[in-house]
Design a protein around this nucleic acid. Structure first.
Lengths: 135, 135
DNA sequence: CGGGATCCCCACCGATACTG
DNA sequence: CAGTATCGGTGGGGATCCCG
């Protein structure tokens, strides 16, 4: 295991089980969870589904700027990680309902802590970025 | 403003000031902060610097697999967001010390909440991912 | 010691068109 | 309604070599 993993994992002082094929393994749970939400749309979907379940086109209308393709990929990604549940109902025309799993709901809590920090410290970050380096 | 921004920002129930050039504006503080750490190396650097300040090659040796180029880019990125401080000391040979700013240190707290969640729920996420879909 | 310059690959993402 | 298929732009990231 690398020093990188040791460092990050120790944030929560825990070791991770490694069902790894004897190859190099350069991931850690924390990094993985952060990357889970770091794509352009996952967090928005997570938050919307945190309020209530939505149907596909309902999400599509609620999220400004997302394409059908990206909504599908986002939902599939969150689904394959066990955060989002997809329920197909055999109606005509077909109807698909998306909602959070208990795992998905439980993520919203630590996430809100980070969100609070983000909103509170956003001005300072923006200010730092606007200080253009000595270009 | 889009429904997307409304949704994510409301995680912390706050509105963001928008000094935006009347164009489309598809970012929110929370997303931005998550993306800040979602690249391959930023979190590792953040955690290592959270323990103590490091010199460049000290970090380079501590982080397994990182290249000089990526270490430079990561430190520059965190620096331009105001999370990492770079101190050049006029010695011979030159010596550069990196450490966290107060802003950077304050981030570690909400981050550890997320880290705890990640480690605790990692098995469930991994299990969900290993359930190969009906291919 | 602490970088910068260059090349190249690949995942992310948008746009568009088509379908059971 | 709820997707899939395809194309192409863009930026992250690795490898390698060079510099004050």
């Amino acid at each position: 295991m690398s020093a990188a993993n040791t460092g990050v994992t120790s944030l929560a002082s825990a070791a991770l089980p490694m069902p790894v094929p004897a190859e190099e393994y350069d991931s850690c749970p924390v990094t993985d969870v952060v990357r889970l939400m770091s794509d352009k749309w996952s967090m928005v979907v997570l938050v919307l589904l945190g309020r209530r379940s939505h149907r596909f086109n309902e999400l599509h209308r609620s999220i400004d700027g997302i394409s059908q393709r990206m909504l599908t990929r986002t939902l599939r990604g969150l689904g394959s990680s066990g955060l989002v549940l997809r329920q197909v109902r055999p109606t005509v025309p077909p109807s698909v309902e998306y909602g959070l799993t208990p795992l998905g709901e439980s993520l919203l809590e630590p996430l809100s802590g980070l969100a609070e920090w983000a909103v509170r410290n956003w001005p300072e970050i923006a200010a730092a970025r606007n200080r253009v380096p000595t270009s």
